[in-house]
Amino acid sequence: MVKGCIFSIEEFSVYDGPGIRSTVFLKGCPLSCEWCHNPEGQDAGIQIVKSPNGCVGCGACFENAVQENGKTVFMERSIKKCPMKLLRYCGKMTESTELCSKLLANREFLSDGGVTFSGGEPFFQSGFLFECLEQLKGKMHTAIQTSGFCESAVFARATELADHFLFDLKLFDEAQHIKYTGVSNRLILENFRFLAKSGKDLTVRIPLIPGVTDTYENIDGLCRLMSESGIYYAELMPYNKMAGGKYKLLGKTYSPSFDETLTPDIRADIFEKYCIKILVL
C-alpha cells in the first residue's frame, strides 16, 4: 500500500461533477500554470504555511524556524508556539483505506453525487489514486479532475476505474502551452482523444485567462479539437482575480505576465459555430 499526500478535502463541492460531491485535493503537480489558484498543490511534499492575517508580530515562529538557502523554513515548533495559531501543516500523509472510509462515511449525502479527485494533478500520485478508485468502485461515483498530463498507459487504466472525467483544456498551441504551463501538451491531447473515443463521461473545462487562453486562435483550436472528438459541451472558468490569494500563505509572490485587470472574452460565437454548448462557471 502506498501512502498519499492530500492537502484538503472539500465537502459539498458544487462545481466538480454531478450531484453533491466531496473533492479530495492531492498534492503535487507537473505543471506550473501561471494562473494557478491552488499553489499549495504544486509541491509534492508537506509544507508548513502561515496565514498572513492576524499576526501579532511576536516572532515566536521565526525563533523556531531554520534558514535554508537564505529562506526561512518553519519547523514544527513554530506551529506549536504561535499564539494566534496562524501556522499549520499543508499536506497530510494518508493511507487509501483511511481516506476511503472517511469518504464513505458521507455516503448518504453523496448518493446522487460522489467523490472527485483533484489537486495538484491527481495523476502525480497515480498509485495512490488507483488504490482509492479501486476501493470506491461500485460503492460511490468517482470523478477525476485532471490536466490530462500523464503517461498513456496510466491514463488508460484510470478510464477503467473512474466514472467521470473533468478534463482541463488550456492551450492548443504547443509552444504557448510550454510557455504558460511549463510542459508540452502532446500527451494531454493524446489522452484527450483517447478519452473522448472511450465514451466515458467527460466534461471539458477551459480556464479563460485574459490574453492567454481566451484568444480567437486558441478557442478556435480547442473547439476544433472538441468537435473532431465528438464533444459538444464545455464549462468555462473565467479568470478569478482571487487566484493569487494563497501565494502569501506559502511565502511566495504571485506575478502573472498577463494583464489581470482585463475581463476574459467568453468567445460565445466560436463555440456556437462549432455547436458546442457552454456553461460559464
Partner: peptide, 22 residues
Amino acid sequence: EIHDSVLRNDIGIKKTAQLVKK
C-alpha cells in the same frame, strides 16, 4: 454560511436545495 459564489447558477441552487433537504 456558504459563499455566495456557490449560488451563482442553477446548478449551485439545485445542489444547495438538496443539501438543505438532506
